[in-house]
Design a binder for these strands. Structure first.
Lengths: 334, 334
DNA sequence: GTCGAAATTGGTAGCGCTGCCAAAAAAAAT
DNA sequence: ATTTTTTTTGGCAGCGCTACCAATTTCGAC
């Protein structure tokens, strides 16, 4: 299976200096466009760089100077569109500011998160971005000791290490409940995915139940599907829930994927949406806007979260928690 | 806006060595679990590491030794689920093999791709992964000169620089056309997104048209939506196409996102699917399996592509092109 | 033309780690 | 107890770059 591959290109800054007939420092200054150098020196350096096909070595550069301009993302998942969205927002800003994104996936496991944070810190990133506030003691300790910026995204209900950008999941849950109650729904159920792992979904659910309980129309039943959220498990979850409580009049789903599953279940079974059963989701996915009846949901600023998180990092902003809020989309399913 | 933040943790290997009362080399060997050292030395080192909260510096390590164990992904987009899927597959394998993923997003722009590849190579990655075979001359030149492994994913129709893992988009287009023809559809249209940028979608379309033309039932019309693929533009595209050709009996979409938009359009307008109009997609998204009528589409091994690509890299396999194939999902919409 | 200020330049000491090598210690063989 | 073999150990030279500083050149003003 093994195979001998040629070594890395060996053109170094010293060779460029030699070829250009200038000193190493001059090459370094020209390439970083920093400090002073003559027009002539610049031309000779650039010519040599071009001719030799020199590619600077940022490993060496970082070691010699200060910042790595590396931003480490330690995210729970890539299947849940939320995280690619945050990455997308952040990556645009980072690229514009000559930073690099590195990432690892924890699969919602705090122990893995700890290991991955350690691995990331070995690259001496400028900042580490994590989802939410729930981390192991070890993770927190490492982050605090690392001296690099820490951004906890997609939540604001908790104690931030340094920076935090997101919105209140608990408030989103409450707003969803209030909306359903206002619309007159009373026999309400919940279909969700694994809450222990996805603590933000857990917070939404907590806020939701709390509001229902306070209103005098407590949650009737819930169906928790093990594993990650998916359209299929949303469908299945609703089917199971309805088997137990056929007379539910509204169901809150842990997110839009699950809700779409529920929506399709209703379509398939001829369950009239809103007349017989209301459906409410979370996230505000694009697809939910194009279904024959637009999905009632809460739209979250995921891309903006990534963007702002990245901006705070590149501008070296002071520690703060930014609540970007969310928007309730009335839609037509509740 | 600026803010003074404490410097990086300054614990170095030398300090650990000092604290443990051993030489630097011994610390290095213990931490990498390589070479020989006594049980006692190991204990003292680990104790000191723990006590000082030492985090190895891979920047320095990489500079001193050989591989960075960094794998660079230069992908067109994070909105198109295809790429997060590939990343997901690869990231699992890479983490298992102590490699790190770095990425940048080109937004389907070859010029940006070139700039980003240059930026990536500055990190001296073990491998660079790109989408498809269409790159600028400059990109190819740099990649070849870099000496690092190159993996071109999600396509096999073209000349690979080194490794390639994917499937034939052209063949997928042909298979889709054959399927529709076999089902008896004759008045066929196409709704797609920007083909110049997404060359793989372009290849599918080319294969599709080719087969139709050869069959004597050439493509009747097409609607190209500018911008990225989305459910909304699929819906809109179909609406426009039907305004011109009301009597189409089947529509091929550039992917499942677009196709779902078309599907929803039919649902909304009461267009009977298959009886009046057939819909065919591409990708095999999960959501297409749960709609009341499962989407007819081609399922592609995206996660497996990422996995295999990563495996070939970590095992340093010889240059090769691996065609992972695809699966036609009959579904119920065509 | 001379002089001081400003612009430009190159040498060199690290950055923190690993690889190499020779020295020291421990174990095995005599 | 001595020699040989094996295991363990530490010193130190880089890896390729940037930061710092001192040296040199250029420039404008007098």
């Amino acid at each position: 299976m093994d195979f001998d591959f040629k070594q890395q290109s060996a053109v170094t800054l010293a060779e460029v200096a030699e070829a250009a007939g200038v000193g190493e420092s001059t090459v370094s200054r020209v390439l970083r466009n920093e400090g002073s150098f003559s027009r002539k020196a610049r031309e000779r350096v650039l010519e040599a760089v071009e001719r030799l096909g020199y590619v600077p070595n940022r490993i060496a550069g970082t070691l010699a100077s200060a910042g790595s301009r590396l931003v480490a993302f330690v995210i729970p998942s890539l299947s849940n569109i939320v995280f690619p969205d945050v990455l997308r927002g952040a990556s645009g800003v980072l690229e514009k500011n000559k930073h690099q994104a590195v990432f690892s996936v924890t699969d919602y496991d705090p122990q893995r998160e700890e290991a991955l944070v350690a691995a990331m810190l070995a690259w001496r990133p400028t900042a580490v971005m994590l989802a939410g506030f729930e981390h192991t003691e070890g993770t927190l300790k490492m982050l605090r000791a690392s001296g690099c910026r820490v951004v906890e995204v997609l939540d604001v209900d908790g104690a931030a290490v340094d920076l935090a950008v997101g919105f209140s999941n608990r408030a989103a849950g409450r707003a969803s409940a209030e909306f359903l109650l206002k619309r007159g729904y009373r026999r309400i159920g919940y279909v969700g995915h694994d809450l222990d792992r996805d603590t933000r979904a857990g917070k939404r659910f907590a806020g939701f139940r709390e509001t229902l309980a306070a209103s005098g129309y407590p949650l009737l039943d819930r169906e928790i599907c093990s594993g990650a959220s998916s359209v299929e498990s949303g469908r299945l979850g609703l089917e199971r829930l309805l088997a137990r409580y056929a007379d539910l009049d509204a169901v809150y789903f842990s997110n839009d994927d699950m809700a779409l599953g529920g929506y399709f279940h209703c379509l398939s079974r001829g369950i009239s949406i809103t007349a017989q059963l209301a459906i409410f989701g979370y996230n505000g996915l694009d697809i939910g806007r194009v279904t024959p009846q637009p999905l009632s949901t809460i739209r979250t600023p995921r891309v903006a979260t990534g963007q702002l998180a990245a901006e705070l990092v590149v501008t070296n902003a002071p520690p703060q928690v930014v609540d970007l809020g969310f928007e309730l989309v009335e839609g037509a399913t509740a």
